[in-house]
Design a protein around this nucleic acid. Structure first.
Length: 244
DNA sequence: ACATTAATTATGT
DNA sequence: ACATAATTAATGT
């Protein structure tokens, strides 16, 4: 989808593009034109850092196309993937969290088109534009909820269930229907999955091989297709772990 | 029930 | 040809 839309979007960015997105959907064409007056548009190749953790939050962002990987680095230097953001959503909205630095690093998981505005405009956006504030707080709340879910899973569930849940979330949020199932819509490695579930790429690889034999998933390099989501749901449910 | 280590193979530019 | 991804077995906690 991106190859065609990419080149069409870049030259001319008009009001109809923003009008479909929830934070702007209640605005008049006039208001959207105002917003577009201050926007900057950038195309990022896969793997680009849009911003880094602890950096001064000088701008906030809207993902027009592609996927963003939200990443943090542990004190020991390992990456932890905390979230994936699909197109149509705001990110890097430090101001909404009462911060003046970014709380995490944002890397493009695939080639992406990113809109951004100076953070100084944030307050006027939330004040002037009907529905902007409420919509952004909805997505913030949704993300906090998801991160909380993952913290719970880490503490209670076993690796197989955590990986299964991570995969299910991926196809729910960023899944694309394909001939024999639902495919994760951006390149993703075993290493990536392990960084989402606090395990090793080896364990993920073994799980994927096992699931492949069971007909639950199929995969080639950097591509994962879930052919039997329901089967994964069954695996994702915690079993009796004989805890006394 | 998992990580680590290490060796081997596959895949994409 | 080279780098990166994925698999697999053996061993460790």
């Amino acid at each position: 989808m991106s190859e065609n839309t990419l080149k069409k979007i870049l030259p001319k960015l008009d009001t109809s593009l923003l009008a479909k997105l929830p934070p702007f959907s209640r605005l008049s064409n006039e208001q959207i034109r105002e917003i577009l007056n201050h926007v900057s548009v950038r195309r990022h190749p896969e793997g680009t850092h849009v911003f880094d953790e602890a950096e001064a939050a000088e701008r906030f962002f809207m993902l027009l196309d592609g996927y963003i990987r939200v990443v943090r680095i542990t004190p020991t230097g390992e990456q932890v993937i905390s979230l994936h953001i699909p197109s149509g959503q705001l990110f890097g909205i430090a101001r909404a969290l009462g911060r003046d630095t970014y709380p995490a690093t944002a890397i493009t998981a695939s080639e992406s088109i990113v809109l951004s505005w100076p953070t100084s405009l944030w307050d006027t956006f939330t004040e002037k534009y009907e529905g902007f504030a409420t919509e952004t707080y909805k997505t913030v709340g949704r993300r906090v909820g998801e991160v909380n879910m993952r913290v719970m899973e880490m503490a209670t569930q076993q690796v197989e269930q955590r990986v299964a849940n991570a995969l299910l979330r991926l196809i729910n949020q960023t899944g694309r229907p394909v001939e024999d199932g639902i495919e994760v819509d951006f390149p993703i490695t075993r290493q990536d999955l392990s960084e989402m579930t606090a395990t090793t790429l080896h364990t993920v690889s073994r799980l994927m091989s096992k699931w492949e034999k069971q007909g639950l998933v199929s995969s080639r390099r950097k591509r994962i297709i879930v052919s039997d989501p329901h089967g994964l749901v069954v695996l994702a449910h915690p079993k009796d772990n004989h805890a006394h």
